[in-house]
Design a protein around this nucleic acid. Structure first.
Lengths: 330, 330
DNA sequence: CTGTTAGCGCCTTCAG
DNA sequence: CTGAAGGCGCTAACAG
């Protein structure tokens, strides 16, 4: 592996001069510069970012902790993050928490040991241990998807999105509206969206049969199961279903189809996420676009601001969203 | 930032000893070890992998060059790669080529400058410049998805998969079979699959109307367009469509639906990829599972072998695949 | 069992 | 305009 020293020797100058042409800093004579550049090309020399980082204390790498890699949301978000970061010469170091808080915490340590310049946490459940870990970390942390105390966060407007969905059903004349949520330990998806549903119902003075409120776990199967339970347990079946996730909604649709219940004639369905799936299921699923890629980009921007300006205070950024009305809705 | 020197001083030993307890190497007295561990805990010291790498010439980071981040295949593959790599203490440094060969080449340089221990290339089009770049790189390279000359590669069995799909149609009595492909510069997806289609047709002594062979560009819209063109141009419409990609197939299905052509009664359709989408479109799409995650894992394994054993020769690994028969097929 | 010494490849004062 | 010297944080002989 050829180093800066080799280049220096071969071009008959000192390392310092080589370093200068490498970084375009300070004065270097045209002649020296030309010679150095030649030698670099001949040797195929590639400067070591490692050594540079050790010296400059900047790695130009951002760690990204994902709850799960193979997810539509994750890949959109990462895409958005990378889009912004790569513009500034940063690279992404991936860390997959696989929905395990222990691993999440461990990754903070690992990323720190690799001296990343910042850590982006695509967040799900926020436990105290996690918050503590984040506090102990000595690089900027920005969260995406959950409001993490003391940490700059990019947030989806879960409450208003969910409120709007419920209200949309109500405006269209639905009185009995079912809800399929997830565990409330997920504050954004579990708690906020559910609260909004209840608030919207209450505001419209609509009753909620407890059987109308079911819970799943982020996959299609559990949506199907939740729907079946709802159908079986409720005295009077709902005429509309709000699932907090597209996959949950699609699961519900599957259940409905199997039961011979027509969508949207007998049951309207809405999800959240604007997944690819939502567009191509039959009937096409009405949903909410959370602009994940944009969210990723914004998160990256925030991160860069934090890196550049150390005195930056913690900020909370709320993303907008867009309702997508399709055939699953009457 | 506390360093190994601080730990040494605080615990009254030399850096060497600290290093020894850190790496569990050599002899350290229980007493010294205990003291050092205490101090480390107190100070929250996290060793710098950077400095370590500079010294050991191993970064424990693998660069992964993706043709596109936000893709179902990509995320599955990355998931598989990470699963294996993380078991060995490696991290993934992401690089998005965004379908641009220039960027791909540039990423090889960038990853090299970051001194990654290896580079996994999730490949699409293989140009000579690329091959040259790979040759110049001085770390192990493993390709996934395309057979890159001189480079260990994990390959999908495109030829046989496509042959099987076509043969399946034939076995079920179809005589007029349409094909929607992609540009042949993509050797695996464009060339191999097309060749297999023609070979299977020829083997069965079946004619191919040139209008039955169309081309798209990996997205649903182009599949729709290709289907429409096929329908318009062919003297006798096919009774079955083989699209080299699920998205292309789904596009074709869209076109068919709009034209009022019933699937599968009037037209059978098959794709490749076993995408999520394929399972939930109506009718559900028959397809081929390429086991992307497994492919990722295998690629990572190959990479690790290469890293550990420098004298390893270049290997080609062919993945198996599985046909998934669903409702789109008569 | 432990410390000394010598760098890994680079940047950055500080003198010329 | 250029070079010498020092050091980033760590590991790896080599002596004790």
């Amino acid at each position: 592996m050829v180093t800066i020293n080799d280049i220096a020797k071969l071009s008959g100058v000192s390392r310092t001069t080589v370093s200068r042409v490498l970084n375009n800093s300070g004065y270097v004579s045209e002649k020296a510069k030309k010679r150095v550049l030649e030698v670099i090309k001949e040797t195929g020399y590639v400067p070591s970012e490692q050594a540079k980082s050790l010296r400059t204390k900047k790695s130009k790498v951002i760690g990204v902790i994902l709850p799960k890699i193979s997810t539509e949301t994750s890949s959109r978000v990462v895409d958005g993050i990378d889009r912004e970061l790569s513009n500034h010469g940063y690279h992404i170091l991936l860390a997959n928490a696989n929905l395990d808080t222990d691993k999440e915490i461990e990754h903070f340590k690992l990323l720190q040991s690799r001296r990343v310049d910042g850590i982006i946490l695509v967040a799900t459940n926020i436990e105290d241990r996690l918050i503590q870990t984040i506090k102990d970390v000595n690089v900027p942390v920005v969260a995406l998807g959950q409001d993490v105390p003391g940490v700059s966060s990019v947030l989806y407007d879960d409450y208003h999105a969910a409120f709007d969905v419920t209200s949309l059903f109500i405006k269209r004349g639905h009185k009995r509206i079912g809800f399929i949520g997830v565990d409330e330990t997920d504050r954004a998806v579990g708690y906020e969206r559910k609260k909004a549903y209840f608030d919207a119902m209450e505001k419209a003075r609509l009753n909620v049969d407890p059987a109308w409120v079911q819970k799943g776990v982020f996959d299609i199967e559990s949506g199907e199961k939740a729907m079946l339970t709802m159908l079986a347990d409720s005295k009077e079946a709902p005429t509309a279903i709000f699932a907090v996730t597209d996959r949950l909604a699609i699961g519900a649709m599957q259940a409905l189809k199997k039961k011979g219940i027509k969508i949207p004639e007998e049951m309207s369905v809405m999800g959240i996420g604007a997944s690819d799936l939502s567009k191509y299921v039959t009937p096409s699923l009405s949903t909410v676009d959370y602009y994940n890629e944009k969210a990723g980009t914004e998160t990256a921007k925030l991160m860069i601001e934090h890196i550049k300006n150390i005195t930056e205070m913690t900020r909370k950024l709320s993303m907008s969203y867009g309702l997508i009305i399709r055939d699953s809705l009457l």
